[in-house]
């Protein structure tokens, strides 16, 4: 057991080292920054548009740099409606309206986009090593489970670092390309989202790793990973729709707890209520990861 944990940690360490050497970590960080930067810029553009409309309505000069009319926007119906459509629960709208606006965009887009990115990353964890048989060197010295868990742990840490780093983009956009954005409050809210986004990513990373274990064709693993994530969103939308309609209550109650999105809504909670859902998501990620393991454990390498 002690050796097992030691090997898992060392494999994770070496995975991070490999990611630094191969610049995959740099690539990951750039992707995260581009997405969060793009999201922040998109949010800024929307706010600017709202402000222009509001200025026209109030017959005052339009703002050149967005952000100055946030207090007025928060009282307006169309802005209210937009925020309502972003949060999963109507009771959260008032709370969401008090947050720095870019943090809402950042969180909302991240919740949707990150699963796709991390699933693709997960798909590259094992399959290429099966193909070139490089994992033979490791598997002579340690167990297959330790190899999988080590790489999962290593990649999770990289994703955690990427999620943290991604906070920089909305800060830069809010500070330098908008006005009257509260810096410290933005930092605090973004940091409070980091653990939530990190945990949210794990089941989807596990999806990718599980698929990476069952094929040695990396592209196939990537396609399957994307299909799985898309499928989970479609399934979630289907279940949500029929739940609202009151259809298939048994099916919904049986299937829903097995898809990560079911717990995603709890991650919006401003209190510590999300911790339980977070724990379930972590457990779920380990279970998902292990779905590919029985095949990998018996696989001829």
């Amino acid at each position: 057991m002690m050796y097992s944990v030691r090997d898992t940690i060392y494999i994770a360490y070496f995975h991070i080292l490999r990611s630094i050497r191969t610049r995959t970590m740099l690539f990951l960080f750039i992707v995260y920054l581009l997405i969060s930067g793009g999201t922040a810029w998109f949010g800024r553009a929307i706010i600017h548009e709202f402000e222009k409309q509001t200025a026209d309505t109030l017959m005052v000069p339009q703002t050149e740099t967005p952000g100055a009319m946030m207090e007025i926007l928060r009282t307006q119906d169309n802005f209210h409606r937009m925020i309502s459509s972003m949060v999963p629960d109507i009771e959260l709208v008032e709370w969401a309206l008090t947050l720095p606006v870019l943090t809402i965009f950042h969180y909302w887009i991240s919740l949707f986009v990150l699963p796709f990115i991390v699933a693709i990353i997960g798909a590259e964890m094992i399959a290429p090593s099966i193909k070139d048989r490089s994992l033979r060197y490791e598997l002579l010295r340690t167990g297959r489970l330790e190899l999988v868990m080590g790489r999962f742990l290593g990649q999770s840490l990289l994703i955690g670092a990427g999620t943290l780093l991604a906070c920089i983009a909305p800060l830069i956009v809010g500070n330098f390309f908008m006005v009257q954005q509260p810096l410290f409050e933005t930092v605090w809210v973004l940091l409070s989202f980091v653990p939530k986004l990190f945990i949210w990513s794990l089941p989807f990373l596990a999806f990718g790793i599980a698929l990476s274990m069952i094929t040695q064709v990396t592209n196939l693993a990537r396609i399957l990973a994307l299909a799985s994530v898309s499928g989970s969103w479609i399934l979630y939308a289907f279940l949500l729709y029929h739940e609202e309609q009151g259809d298939y209550p048994l099916l919904i109650s049986v299937v829903s707890p097995f898809i990560p999105q079911y717990y995603g809504t709890a991650l919006w909670s401003p209190s510590w209520d999300w911790i339980l859902s977070g724990c379930i998501l972590i457990t779920m990620s380990i279970v998902y990861c292990m779905t590919g393991y029985p095949l990998f454990a018996r696989r001829n390498l």
């Binding site: 490999r18 191969t22 490089s134 060197y137 002579l140």
Partner: peptide, 21 residues
């Protein structure tokens, strides 16, 4: 691998070493 840890060395014929290390 646990019982033979450190007791057995193998040079596989067609396994690649990750060249980036």
């Amino acid at each position: 691998p646990w019982k033979l840890r450190g007791k057995m060395g193998v040079l596989p014929q067609d396994a690649e070493i990750d060249g980036r290390h």
